[in-house]
Simulated assay, not measured.
Amino acid sequence: MIGKLKGTIEEKQAPDLLLDVGGVGYEIQLPMTSFYQLPEVGGQVEIYTHFVVREDAQSLYGFVARQDRQLFRELLKANGVGPKLALAILSGLTADQFVTLVQNGEANSLTKLPGIGKKTAERLIIELKDRLKNWSAPLLTPFTDAVPVDMVTESPLISVADPTEDAVSALMALGYKQTQAQQAVKKVGQDGLSSEELIKLALKSML
C-alpha cells in the first residue's frame, strides 16, 4: 500500500497530478479541494494517498490533508460508492462540510453533487451518520467556500491555451454532464481567471 508520497510536481491538469518521486512519476487523481492547494509546477508537495486495485485498472488517489483521505476511505465503504463518486463528493465539499450535511440529515443538499440522487443521499446518511459521529475535525457551515480564495494557486495549469475548456473537462472528469459543466463555467466565466479558479467558482455555483 502506498500511503504517502513526497516529490516534485511535473504536471497538473485537474483532477490529475503527475508527481516525480526520486525519478519515478506517479499519476494521482485529487479532489478539487486538495488540487486548489497544490503549489505551482516544479514545487514540492507531500500527498497522502489511497491505492485502488481493480481487475481492469490500478489507480492512485491523493489528498493534501490526512482527514480528506480518511473520509474518502469511509465513503468507499458505503454501498454503491466507488472512487469516482467519492472524488466528486470531496471536490464539491470539504470533508467537514460533508460530515455536517450527513450529521444534520440534509439529503437534499447532497443531491446537488454529481451522481447522487435522493435515494443515494438518504443511504449515505443512514450508513455514515454513526461512523462519522466522532469526526474529530471542527464542523463548518455547509456550502461556504470550500477553500479560501487566497489558497487557490495563481499559477496556470499545464494546458493554458483555453482555461474554459480545461475547466469543463475537469468538471466532466468529476462526473458532471457536459452541458451542465459548460453552463456552470459560462455562468462564472470572467477574463483572466485560471482554470482552477473557474472550476472552484463553477462548483460553488452548482451547490
Rank of each mutant, 00 (worst) to 15 (best):
K77P: 05
L60A: 10
D16P: 04
I158R: 15
V147C: 10
Q70S: 13
L140D: 11
L139A: 00
G23E: 11
T100W: 00
E106Y: 08
E165P: 08
G7F: 01
S109D: 08
L174T: 06
K118D: 03
R54L: 12
L124S: 13
K187A: 11
L171F: 04
L201D: 08
D20W: 02
E165I: 15
E196L: 13
A137L: 11
G62V: 05
Y26N: 04
R123K: 12
L132R: 05
G43Y: 06
A14T: 12
L90F: 03
G43M: 06
P83N: 02
G192N: 09
D130R: 13
V21M: 03
L128M: 15
Y36I: 02
E40W: 01
P39Y: 04
L203C: 13
G25A: 15
K84L: 10
E165L: 14
L71E: 03
A202F: 05
A170Q: 05
Y26G: 06
L30Q: 03
D68T: 05
G192H: 04
R131K: 15
A173F: 06
Q29F: 07
G82A: 13
K77T: 12
G42W: 05
P83H: 04
L174I: 10
G192V: 04
I158C: 02
Q44S: 11
V41S: 11
E40I: 14
D20V: 01
A95H: 05
P148V: 13
E122H: 00
L171M: 14
L128K: 15
T94I: 00
A173P: 04
Q97L: 10
M172C: 12
T100L: 00
P114L: 13
V64N: 03
V102R: 03
A184C: 05
P83K: 10
L17H: 00
A161P: 04
P114V: 14
I89G: 03
V24I: 13
L19C: 04
D162P: 08
N79L: 01
P156V: 15
S136M: 07
T49K: 00
A88F: 06
T144G: 15
L93S: 10
S34T: 05
V41G: 09
Q183L: 14
Q67E: 14
K133Y: 01
I47Q: 09
F98A: 05
E122N: 11
G42C: 11
G82H: 07
S169F: 10
S205H: 00
K12Y: 10
L140A: 12
M172H: 02
N108V: 12
L198Y: 00
L124Q: 09
K187P: 04
P138E: 00
P39N: 07
Y48P: 08
G62R: 02
V24L: 04
T141D: 06
G117V: 09
T94C: 06
G115P: 11
F98E: 01
F63E: 09
S34D: 07
K119V: 10
K133F: 06
L171I: 08
P39K: 07
